[in-house]
């Protein structure tokens, strides 16, 4: 069971908003890079986010570049899951590969600052701030297996190959 606060963002949160290309020179210095997480979308995010919180987006979350650094800096910030109405393909795969759950659901009823409780097993999100319940779409079976092992590297370490 995951519990934390929602940080609400709009549609089309691109990888440039999550971690701009201009900081590419910091990519081998992850602690420094992570300080800029979500900077161009909300410059106060990095200082306000706490371990266990959630990022909640709208449509097409994570569109743009293939930079795995985008989900990586989100994970480093302590975020335990991303909720969005839809997710760009490469970002989705990258997040799962890092062991960061991405849950597709109708995020309209979630407000900024809402307290959420997420049950990954049953697929239910409880919004403790407004009493509403939400179901999220099933994570595809292959990705669930990768997520269950904590990401693609632990998965391959354990299985030695893709066992789909």
């Amino acid at each position: 069971m995951l519990t934390g606060k929602a940080f609400k963002f709009g549609d089309d949160i691109s990888t440039d908003l999550i971690i701009p290309g201009k900081y590419a020179y910091l990519r081998s210095n992850l602690p420094e890079l992570a300080k800029h997480v979500m900077e161009d979308a909300d410059s106060t995010f990095a200082s306000r986010v706490k371990q266990g919180d959630f990022i909640v987006g709208g449509n097409n979350f994570g569109l743009g570049s293939s930079r795995e650094h985008a989900p990586l800096v989100i994970k480093m910030a302590g975020v335990k899951a991303i909720l969005a109405k839809s997710v760009a393909r490469i970002f989705f795969r990258n997040a799962i590969n890092l062991g960061l759950p991405v849950l597709v659901c109708d995020t309209d009823s979630i407000g900024d600052g809402d307290e959420l409780e997420i049950d990954l097993q049953s697929g239910v999100i409880k919004n403790k701030s407004n009493g509403k319940q939400l179901a999220f779409g099933k994570i595809p079976a292959v990705m669930l297996r990768i997520l269950d092992e904590g990401g693609i590297l632990p998965y391959i370490e354990k299985h030695g190959d893709f066992r789909l």
Partner: peptide, 10 residues
């Protein structure tokens, strides 16, 4: 097709 660093590493 484009992929992230972990996918391409593997």
């Amino acid at each position: 097709c484009g992929m992230g660093s972990s996918d391409v590493a593997i």
